[in-house]
Computed example of a mutant assay.
Amino acid sequence: MPRHHRVSNCFSTLLVIAMLLLTSTMAAAQQVLPSWRDGSTRQAIVDFVQAVTHEGGPKFVAVEDRIAVFDNDGTLWTEHPVYFQFAFILDRVKALAPQHPEWKENEPFKSVLAGDMKGLAASGEKGIVELAMETHGGMTTDEFNAIVTDWFASARHPKFKRPYSELTFVPMRELLDYLRANGFKTYIVSGGGVEFMRPMTEKMYGIPPEQVIGSRIATKYMLKDDKPILMREPKVDFVDDGPGKPVGINAIIGRRPIFVAGNSDGDYEMLRWATAGDGPRLGVIVHHTDEVREYAYDRETHFGKLDKAMTEASERGWILIDMKNDWSKVYDALP
């Protein structure tokens, strides 16, 4: 075979190999965070993960220190028009009302039963706590677990008419999977009730109950018919919100996370504390900007207010995730 033919064939072979490698690389890239649009936000996350997992690199982090924490309400699932747990409380008041005829005359129960949200709001934090204690206490942990599981199976979101369990954010679930595939241990750190979340988090996010940190009411060991039970008492034990979040992380995990995700000022202290540690750190904030596929809100809202954290995000190196522009998809069940 003439030499120029051999050179031509060799060149063609190299070209085919290069094209195959490029195609393979592009396909692999598309498999990472596929519901995230290409852009600076997605790239910053990928760059961070690649840097901390590159053994021998200047930013390498040992596996045992790859801790990632995620808020839940508004970060992993929708939180409007009200927090899921608040919707659960309202439904529980209505379900228990026949056993409490006095509620028709006593606030804040009267407003709930009358559908008077302004009246309920007037009862303030004290009223909300009273509702929570009445609907969450006075039962065993197993009984409460069953009630929560049944509610998630039957309740529907008022806007989307879908089970609340279907309103988790696909891009954030992809992020959880991506982090775990790169040696991270993922935790939920939420202001929501820990035993409200635990029955659902493994199915929804792949996060087992022991990796869920949340607010809790007092629980007491006792015997009932000579059988040991854990009884939930109607009093607050710990509030895992605001400054309580880093306290809860330290108490339960014992390590400072290197990756933290939130969406509101309730996550501010967690973001500050987690990203203030030594070595590479990344904080991300889900900014609700999509009024069509989800909701649009930040500084002016009763649920998930994002003000101080958004103002300081740039100077502290926190990334604002623009839901409308950074995500090609929000939910599995909806467009």
Rank of each mutant, 00 (worst) to 15 (best):
G183M: 13
G192I: 03
N182R: 15
P171W: 00
R180Y: 01
I188E: 13
E174A: 08
K161P: 00
V170W: 00
F169G: 10
G192W: 09
R173T: 11
G192T: 01
M172I: 05
R198V: 02
L176M: 13
K161S: 08
K161F: 00
Y187T: 15
F196V: 02
R162H: 07
G191N: 09
G193N: 13
S190A: 11
V170H: 05
V170S: 01
G192D: 08
V194R: 14
L175I: 08
E174P: 12
S165T: 13
I188M: 08
E195D: 15
R180C: 02
P163W: 02
R173F: 02
T186P: 15
A181V: 04
P163K: 03
R180F: 04
E195M: 12
D177Q: 09
E174M: 04
E166C: 11
T186E: 14
L167T: 09
P163G: 02
Y178D: 05
N182Q: 07
G192Y: 12
L175P: 06
T168E: 09
G193L: 15
P171G: 04
Y187P: 15
K185P: 02
N182W: 07
Y164I: 04
I188V: 15
G183F: 14
R198T: 15
F196M: 12
G191I: 09
M172P: 08
S165P: 03
Y164V: 00
F196A: 11
V194A: 14
G183A: 12
E166P: 05
E174Q: 13
M172G: 03
S190W: 12
L176K: 06
V170M: 06
G183P: 04
M172S: 01
G192V: 08
N182T: 00
L179I: 03
F196C: 11
S190E: 11
G191C: 06
V194I: 14
E195C: 08
G193M: 09
N182L: 06
V170C: 11
F196H: 10
L167G: 05
L175W: 06
V189Y: 10
Y164G: 02
L176R: 03
V189G: 15
F196S: 09
L175F: 13
P171Q: 07
F196W: 14
P163V: 04
T186K: 12
E195V: 04
F196L: 12
S165A: 12
R173V: 07
T186R: 06
Y178S: 03
S165Y: 01
M172K: 08
E174H: 04
I188F: 14
G191K: 03
K161C: 00
R198I: 04
I188H: 13
L175K: 06
Y164S: 03
M172W: 05
L167D: 09
Y178T: 07
N182E: 07
G193V: 10
S165M: 01
R180S: 04
G193R: 03
G192N: 09
A181I: 01
G191L: 12
Y187C: 15
L175G: 07
M197S: 10
L179N: 05
K185F: 11
E166M: 11
P163I: 01
G191M: 11
S165F: 02
L176W: 04
